[in-house]
Computed example of a mutant assay.
Amino acid sequence: MEGTPDEFGSGYRLLSSVVVPRPIAWVGSYDADGTANLAPYSFFNVVSAAPPVIYFAPGGTGEDRKDSANNAIESEAFTVHVVTREFAEAMNATSAALDPDEDEFEHAGLERVDATNVHAPRIADAPVVLECELYDTQEVGHQTLVFGEVVYAHVDDGVVTDGKPDVTKLDAVGRLAGNYYATTDDRFRLERP
C-alpha cells in the first residue's frame, strides 16, 4: 500500500504505528493552585546532551493545550519519569481523562513527593526521574512541544553499574500503536563501525 497519510487513516495513525517503539515521558507537574498532575506522552525524546534538553509533545495548542503543557509553561518546571514494566499499569491509569482538579498520583495509587530542585511532583519510588526547568515551547500543527533542561536526576542504584545508568538493568516500556506496548527485555548488541 502506498499513499498520503490520510489514506492510512490519518497522519497520527500512520506515524504512531510505524515510529515504534516510542519512549514514554510520564510527566509530573503542578498547576497554579498546587494540584498535582501526572500523564504519559509517547511523543517524547532527547533534543540535546549539552545542555541536556528533552521534550514531550502533548496534543493541543492555545486554549486546547493539555494540563501537563499548561502546568509546565506556567510553573516553568516538570518531571519526567521513565516508565518501567513495574509501573506500566499505573502509567496507563494516569492516562484516564480526569477533571483538572483530580490528582492522578492518588488515582493510580502512587506515592507523590516533591522534586528536589524544581517545583514539580515526582513518584517517590520511580527508578528514573528527570527534573526539568522549562527551556522553550514550540507549536507544530496541533501539538505543543515542551522542551525542558534536565537540572537534576534520580536514578535508582538498581539500574546503575559503575556509577552510570545501565540500559541492561532498566526494564523500560515503549509505546507501539493502539493498546500495544513493548519492553526492552529483548536486547541485542551491535558494535558501531
Score class of each variant (00 low, 15 high):
residue 7 E to S: 15
residue 8 F to V: 12
residue 8 F to G: 05
residue 9 G to Y: 12
residue 11 G to Y: 09
residue 15 L to S: 13
residue 15 L to T: 14
residue 16 S to F: 02
residue 18 V to P: 08
residue 20 V to L: 13
residue 20 V to M: 06
residue 22 R to H: 11
residue 24 I to D: 04
residue 25 A to W: 02
residue 27 V to F: 03
residue 28 G to Y: 01
residue 29 S to W: 02
residue 30 Y to E: 03
residue 31 D to Y: 12
residue 31 D to F: 11
residue 32 A to H: 08
residue 33 D to Q: 04
residue 36 A to T: 11
residue 37 N to D: 04
residue 38 L to C: 03
residue 39 A to H: 02
residue 41 Y to R: 01
residue 42 S to F: 01
residue 45 N to V: 07
residue 48 S to Y: 11
residue 49 A to S: 09
residue 49 A to T: 15
residue 49 A to Y: 06
residue 52 P to M: 08
residue 53 V to W: 08
residue 54 I to K: 02
residue 54 I to D: 03
residue 55 Y to R: 03
residue 55 Y to D: 00
residue 56 F to C: 04
residue 57 A to T: 03
residue 61 T to S: 05
residue 62 G to I: 12
residue 64 D to L: 12
residue 64 D to I: 01
residue 64 D to S: 14
residue 64 D to R: 14
residue 66 K to Y: 11
residue 67 D to L: 10
residue 68 S to Y: 01
residue 69 A to D: 13
residue 72 A to M: 06
residue 74 E to A: 15
residue 74 E to I: 01
residue 74 E to V: 14
residue 75 S to N: 14
residue 75 S to W: 05
residue 76 E to G: 08
residue 78 F to R: 02
residue 79 T to R: 00
residue 79 T to N: 03
residue 80 V to C: 03
residue 80 V to H: 00
residue 80 V to F: 04
residue 82 V to W: 03
residue 83 V to C: 00
residue 87 F to C: 05
residue 88 A to R: 15
residue 89 E to T: 15
residue 89 E to V: 13
residue 89 E to H: 12
residue 91 M to L: 06
residue 96 A to G: 02
residue 97 A to K: 10
residue 97 A to D: 14
residue 98 L to K: 05
residue 99 D to F: 10
residue 99 D to S: 14
residue 101 D to Q: 14
residue 102 E to S: 09
residue 102 E to N: 03
residue 103 D to I: 07
residue 104 E to H: 13
residue 107 H to G: 04
residue 109 G to T: 05
residue 110 L to N: 02
residue 111 E to P: 04
residue 112 R to V: 09
residue 114 D to K: 10
residue 114 D to S: 06
residue 115 A to M: 01
residue 117 N to C: 07
residue 119 H to Y: 06
residue 120 A to N: 07
residue 121 P to K: 03
residue 122 R to V: 02
residue 122 R to S: 08
residue 122 R to K: 15
residue 124 A to H: 09
residue 127 P to I: 01
residue 128 V to Y: 06
residue 128 V to L: 15
residue 129 V to A: 01
residue 129 V to C: 04
residue 133 E to C: 07
residue 134 L to Q: 08
residue 136 D to W: 00
residue 137 T to G: 00
residue 137 T to L: 09
residue 139 E to A: 13
residue 140 V to Q: 08
residue 144 T to N: 04
residue 144 T to A: 11
residue 147 F to D: 03
residue 147 F to V: 06
residue 148 G to H: 04
residue 149 E to R: 02
residue 150 V to F: 11
residue 151 V to H: 02
residue 151 V to A: 06
residue 152 Y to K: 04
residue 152 Y to V: 03
residue 153 A to Y: 00
residue 153 A to E: 04
residue 154 H to D: 09
residue 155 V to T: 14
residue 157 D to Q: 11
residue 159 V to W: 12
residue 161 T to L: 09
residue 162 D to N: 15
residue 162 D to P: 00
residue 163 G to N: 09
residue 164 K to W: 04
residue 164 K to P: 00
residue 165 P to Y: 10
residue 167 V to K: 00
residue 169 K to Q: 14
residue 171 D to Q: 13
residue 173 V to T: 05
residue 175 R to C: 07
residue 176 L to Q: 12
residue 177 A to Y: 12
residue 179 N to E: 14
residue 181 Y to L: 11
residue 181 Y to E: 00
residue 182 A to P: 02
residue 184 T to Y: 05
residue 184 T to C: 13
residue 184 T to G: 15
residue 187 R to K: 13
residue 189 R to T: 15
residue 190 L to S: 06
residue 191 E to A: 14
residue 191 E to H: 11
residue 191 E to R: 11
residue 192 R to H: 14
